[in-house]
Nucleic acid binder design. Structure first.
Length: 434
RNA sequence: GCCCCGGUAGUGUAGCGGCCUAUCAUGAAGCCCUGUCGAGGCUUCGACUCGGGUUCAAAUCCCGACCGGGGCGCCA
């Protein structure tokens, strides 16, 4: 059996073990050599005193190229001089994956590496524990979302990613050739999850990729991201939807803190569970608040990145890292949102986390005639949405839902400056490789 | 798409018309060293994004291309 840096304990002292990992560093002092071997969970030190080691093993260690994969068999010896409390005295060393030199970038070098270089050599970048830890947390986050929603009666679904029309206009769609027909990569499961509301699968969720051909060039946009979508039927108002997201985010963050402890330590990051209940700030009130802070904006205008950040600062001052911005102007929202009758607003909300939108949702328009009216108002042709509209014509309950950017949530939770840090191989306007 | 900024050894940088045969660190190759953990000492190696132009002279100034960074719009 193979041991690793986490599974070697005092029980293994004086016993022979085999470990495999990357040769992070070799410190050769002449009469004694130290090999720092890194694996998923940490490092072990292999110590080779020249006089006690077979010459071929000594030769193998001193000539090792950094980042080569090696398998070492040896005896575990307790040692007060080593941070881990033990070291391995090797009896054999096999290079199972030699590394070429020089490396395209250092894993433990004392010089900085630019973001572009890191992403060009992502396999190497991900060898850094603090870079990799993000993905341990991201995986855990997904699992926790699953757990929470399953406990709340949600069915996990998978909607098509190859679609014939977009959910919110055509400009942000990636075109693909589909057996000679025009198709697109799905920008959102929106239409499909709503259709499901007419079936009896009255609580569904999906965690899957979404594609946006927006020419955005910011630290919080990529063209492929993981969207956590949910939709629930038989609701009384969008408050039911908000309560679900609030419960879910509270659960996820609290459990990440518990179960993701070791990964958070690798990141050197302290996660706080946001104060609940999350305050609900109406769009109207939000505009007033940023105006009060000296920001130039008129009612009806979008808050914009700056306004959003400013509002985030104001809310954090009051101790709230998460908060709702509710009832946006209906004109700024997609066709499927329900209008708030007699006002220019809508039954919609955004969930902001430290000044950045991570989720948006609301109550949907489930009344067929109103939905068609709203499409026409937004200059969309109901005919091209027939497959969707039909589901509203034969018995559709009131419903609402949300979309939440998983990476944005992880980014904000971990305090990362760029969403790309939460994506193994990010896709953006200038990056398609690797 | 718009505004600003930048591209120098494997990596990160200094230099910004002649003192450049281009700085420093890190790295790589080699040698010395028995307790390193940012090991130390010595030697060596390695670069001005590309194409035009200005000039006696271009890494340095101008134009274009390509690539990248920061911000905005839009959104998750």
């Amino acid at each position: 059996m193979l041991y690793d840096s986490r599974s070697i304990t005092a029980n293994e002292y004086e016993k022979e073990v085999t470990v495999e990992g990357w040769a992070q560093e070799v410190r050769n002092l002449g009469g004694i050599s130290f090999l720092i071997l890194r694996d998923r969970y940490g490092v072990v030190q292999v110590t080779a005193p020249k006089k006690k080691i077979a010459p071929e093993v000594m030769q193998a260690i001193t000539s090792l190229a950094r980042e080569s994969v090696v398998r070492v068999t040896g005896t575990v010896k307790p040692s007060a001089q080593v941070k881990a409390g033990y070291e391995i005295i090797p009896s054999s060393l096999i290079v199972t994956g030699a590394a070429q030199t020089p490396l395209p970038m250092g894993v433990v070098d004392k010089v900085d590496v630019e973001t572009e270089t890191r992403f060009n050599h992502r396999y190497m970048d991900l060898r850094k524990p603090e870079v990799r830890a993000v993905f341990e947390i991201k995986s855990l986050t997904m699992r926790l979302i699953d757990e929470y929603l399953a406990d709340n009666g949600f069915v996990e679904v998978f909607t098509p990613k190859l679609v014939a029309s977009g959910a919110e206009g055509g400009s942000t769609l990636f075109k693909v050739d589909y057996f000679g027909k025009q198709a697109y990569l799905a920008q959102s499961p929106q239409l499909y999850k709503q259709m499901l509301m007419s079936t009896g699968l009255d609580r569904v969720f999906e965690i899957g990729p979404a594609f946006r051909a927006e020419p955005s060039d910011t630290a919080r946009h990529v063209s492929e991201f993981i969207s956590f979508d949910g939709e629930m039927a038989h609701i009384d108002s969008q408050r039911d939807v908000m309560a679900m997201i609030e419960g879910c985010t509270q659960f996820v963050i609290a459990e990440v803190k518990e179960r993701g402890d070791w990964a958070l330590r690798a990141l050197g990051c302290d996660v706080a569970v946001p104060k609940a209940p999350y305050p609900v700030v109406s769009y109207e009130k939000a505009v007033g608040m940023v105006q009060g802070a000296g920001f130039k904006i008129e009612l009806g205008e979008d808050l914009g990145t700056e306004g959003e950040k400013l509002l985030g600062e104001l809310m954090v001052q009051d101790g709230y890292e998460m908060y709702w911005i509710a009832e946006y102007p209906e004109a700024a929202k997609p066709f499927y949102i329900m209008e708030k009758e007699g006002t220019p607003y809508s039954y919609s909300f955004d969930l902001d986390y430290k000044g950045q939108e991570i989720s948006s949702g609301g109550q949907r328009e489930h009344r067929y005639d109103r939905l068609v009216q709203r499409m026409e108002k937004m200059q969309l042709d109901p005919k091209s949405f027939e497959f969707y509209l039909n589901a509203f014509a034969y018995g559709m309950p009131a419903h609402g839902g949300w979309g939440l950017g998983v990476e944005r949530m992880v980014q904000k939770m971990l305090g990362l400056s760029n969403i790309r840090e939460t994506i193994l191989f990010p896709r953006d306007r200038n990056r398609l490789v690797p």
